[in-house]
Computed example of a mutant assay.
Amino acid sequence: MKFPEFTAKTVTGEDISSDVFKDSKLTVVNVWGSWCGPCVREIPELQKLYENMKDKNVNVIGLAQDAGSDMDAVKEVIEKNNVTYQNIVPEGVTEGFVMSLMAFPTTFFVDSEGNIVGSIQGARDLDGFTKIVEDLLANQA
Rank of each mutant, 00 (worst) to 15 (best):
L136V: 10
E95S: 11
Y50V: 05
T130V: 11
D125V: 10
I78E: 00
I116E: 07
K54F: 04
G37A: 13
G13W: 01
S100I: 02
S24T: 04
V89T: 11
L49Q: 02
T107D: 05
L26N: 06
C39F: 11
D72S: 12
N82D: 14
S24H: 11
V93A: 14
G118D: 10
K25E: 15
V58R: 03
G68R: 08
F109H: 07
C39E: 09
V60N: 05
W35D: 11
D111C: 13
T106D: 02
M102N: 15
S24A: 13
K131F: 03
G92D: 12
N30Q: 09
E134G: 00
S17L: 00
K9H: 09
N57C: 07
N87H: 13
E134L: 10
F3N: 00
A73G: 12
W32N: 01
E5S: 13
D55I: 00
I132H: 09
N30D: 13
G114R: 12
F108K: 03
P90G: 13
N59D: 12
S119W: 13
M99Q: 14
F21N: 01
L101D: 06
S69L: 07
M102P: 02
V58G: 01
Q47L: 04
V110S: 07
T10I: 05
K56V: 02
A67P: 09
N59C: 00
T12D: 15
F97E: 05
G114F: 12
W35P: 06
G37M: 07
E42I: 05
L46P: 00
I120T: 15
L136Y: 10
N52Q: 14
L101M: 15
I88A: 03
K80P: 08
V11C: 00
N82C: 05
T130S: 15
D127C: 01
P38L: 05
V20Y: 06
D135I: 08
Q140V: 01
I132K: 14
A123Y: 02
T130I: 12
E95T: 06
S34P: 05
S100F: 01
G96Y: 06
V74W: 04
K54L: 13
T106L: 00
F3D: 00
N115Q: 15
K9L: 05
S69T: 15
D55A: 12
I88N: 04
V11G: 00
V74N: 02
G33R: 06
R41I: 05
G114I: 12
A141R: 13
G37C: 01
G33M: 09
F97A: 10
K25Y: 10
K80A: 15
V117A: 09
L101R: 09
T7Q: 13
A103C: 11
S17P: 01
V40I: 14
K48Y: 03
L26R: 07
P44H: 08
F129Y: 14
G62F: 04
T27I: 03
T94A: 04
G118E: 10
A141F: 04
D135H: 07
Y50F: 15
S34L: 08
S34E: 06
Q86S: 12
W35Q: 11
N59E: 12
L63R: 01
A141H: 05
Y50E: 10
M71S: 04
V98A: 14
M1F: 04
L137F: 04
E113D: 14
P38H: 11
G37Y: 04
F3Y: 09
